[in-house]
Amino acid sequence: MKSNENVRRGAGDLIARYGTLGLMALVCLFLAISVPAFIQPSNLFDVLRQVAVVGIMACGLTYAVAAGGFDLSVGSVAALSTVFVAWLLVRNVPVLAALLVVLAVGAACGWANGLFCARLRIVPWVGTLATMLAVVGPQFMLTGGGSQIPGGLGPKQPLMDFLGKGFLGPVPVAALVMLLVAAVAEIVLSKTALGQHMYAAGGDRVAAETCGIDSRRVLWLAYIFSGVLAAGSGLLMAARMGLGQVRIGEPYLMDAIAAVFLGSTVIKEGRPHILGTIVGAIFMGIMFNGLTLLHTPYWGFYLFRGIMVFAAVALSGFRSR
């Protein structure tokens, strides 16, 4: 029995693996030529800082998709955590405690998604949509019906400022946080048995179960990770804006979806993975930066998001149920 080693190195395969990367490079080249401000290091670092929020959120979504689910609630959960952390900080809760509580709330949202989609076996799109809608309620509850928590993040918060706006040398702290989170996420997803089992459950649930993998538990955990990371991205969002705002996270959902699906076409074709997701998120950030530099009006971003999701999904070959 001979393996078809040489087939694997075929040209078609190269395009599949690196085609998206090439496309991204072309876009960057175009931007660099047409908008000189684009390649300024300060601008590039700024892109990275902006990417951090989407990047972390998309890492969470990567887990849900890898395990065979989906998570439409990530944007909403992030918005909830901006509001909740602001609410806590305004009430003089110590920063670290506030951060932990918010992450725990994110985990709880993920747990609920797991309950709906892994336990009750509701289709992930509908189950997580319910969570997405539900967490809008608590946001307004905390603001008392307004759109923001009055008082920003309360008294001066050095840690939050450092996370959201700080720099280490030329590098924004937020970008470093994203890279750290991504590194951990990558190790868990691709180096541990748990990550293997997530991929297995997402690849073929029946096959995974015949090998003794508890696919329900694995999927449930993936939703919890997704919830925690969504909450984390919300914290970064709050730190950057210096306030908690209702429904601020929803547009990021699209960016995260696009990042995950673009990412799944990069290097390891065909399945979502963290490195690809980060590449996808950075690409989305560059595109947005370019659109801003080209003075695209606000509605243009919505159209762009929709089109990017079509393109990413079509590229990744993610097909109908």
């Binding site: 959902l253 699209m254 919505y302 079509f310 999904v313």
Partner: peptide, 14 residues
Amino acid sequence: HINDFLATVAMMFI
């Protein structure tokens, strides 16, 4: 044959 949820989520934003 794009997944109906994803296609229509994108359409929502459009």
